[in-house]
Design a protein around this nucleic acid. Structure first.
Lengths: 229, 229
DNA sequence: TTCGTATGTTATCGTAGTTAAGTTAACGTC
DNA sequence: GACGTTAACTTAACTACGATAACATACGAA
């Protein structure tokens, strides 16, 4: 073995050059995401992630404070997709209550598409400390607070209700409370289907449409029937 | 120290007489429940339970297949309370939709009273095997399947909707689907408040009443306003 | 050249759930 | 009243986990 150590292994360079720590950070997140998808959240352990990256387990602690932070960073990226979808709907020229329906449906479908991430953000215990802080962070784009993007998604629904109120439709409660009720209802559907996937539920599509409708009509009694065909 | 071993410790007899294993089983459940209430689910470990019972940790495996089975046995007993409450409401001479409201409210309040158990039954991952079997079981009263009592609670709501249909009120969906929607909505409220207790939600009582109302009115459009004063 | 620091590693700790193997005590029976 | 059986336990150990401390090394800057 003449040379330094660049032997046969091609999986990842043995050691990162000086300023390239964030590259390793990305590798860790990618490995964690792959493990997450392939083997589930249970199998996504510090050691297994490190093994897949090709690095020792404590090395992960250079880039993340603890295991939770890795998972939360993953979830935050996934939830950015949800935010994006909701913002798209926000921009559509639609009657407010129809916009609300579409948001509800998008929310539910997103949750069912990403059950593990949804579980971590909305079903798991809250992390003890409110504010987290990453030591070696180079970018401040993601992960201000755990579940921050989840909360922002919720905010979008509140704004939709405020728009409804501005349209002159009378709400029985303040917009925030309306939003909470609507969101909780949709959240309940997602949570139930995720937590109990083998239960003999009714047809999933019917449930989604029914809940979207109910979450609007249950909160806004002024709406007699559906608006769209 | 003349005698065999009945020294100073009064916490529990050192060893059970021949056929009295189930007594120890009860002690384990009692200790687990106490730990559960005092220190939370996180602190309820095999070793701590065993310590409290006054027995070695592996001794618990004489009575339970694994840790999950202990927690599920606990939860099952708690959920028996919910079933009891729902059955009481079932027996009340009330219009069906009013009975539905009361059930919803009872369900929500129960969930908020027992957040840890609720979490285990309805929010945690489903256990891989569908049917569990306890080795040394002497009674077959509880724990047929994990979460069985939770499912039974759900059945009660379905029956309430069937009663509504029998009263001549037209439902937009089959009773089972109506029940699923109603239950999921209430479930969403409980799940959200349990998982995110520090979020600045609106007033809890208002949320409960609003959700009970919405879960009925959202599903049964024939109901214009609340029935009760 | 030397020093500081980013980038790691190895060794280790403490805790968890769980199992294997051995021990003790109660009981029926001859 | 010794004997075998077995329920009721214990001790020791295994594997796996998250996390930390202490040590190593490469590399850019002064």
């Amino acid at each position: 073995m003449g040379f330094s150590g660049k032997g046969a292994v091609a999986k990842s360079p043995a050691r990162k050059p000086r300023g390239e720590g964030h590259t390793r950070r990305e590798e860790i997140l990618a490995a964690a995401k792959a493990l997450f998808l392939e083997e589930g959240v249970k199998a996504t352990t510090i050691r297994r992630i490190a093994e897949r990256v090709g690095v020792s387990a404590p090395a992960l602690y250079l880039y993340f404070k603890d295991k939770d932070e890795i998972l939360l960073a993953l979830c935050d990226r996934i939830f950015a997709i949800l935010l994006q979808r909701l913002e798209e709907i926000e921009r559509l020229p639609l009657p407010a209550c129809e916009r609300l329906r579409r948001m509800g449906e998008a929310y539910i479908r997103f949750g069912l598409e990403h059950p593990d991430e949804y579980r971590i953000i909305f079903l798991e215990s809250p992390t003890p400390e409110a504010v987290r802080y990453t030591g070696h962070r180079t970018d401040t784009s993601d992960l201000e607070r755990p579940g921050a993007k989840g909360a922002m998604a919720f905010t979008k629904i509140t704004q939709a209700y405020e728009a409804i109120a501005k349209e002159g439709i009378v709400l029985p409660y303040p917009p925030a409370l309306c939003a909470e009720l609507s969101w909780m209802a949709c959240h309940g559907l997602v949570a139930a289907l995720i937590a109990e996937p083998d239960f003999p539920w009714s047809d999933r599509e019917t449930l989604i449409r029914g809940m979207v409708e109910a979450s609007v009509r249950g909160v806004v009694p002024a709406l007699g029937q559906a608006t769209s065909a």
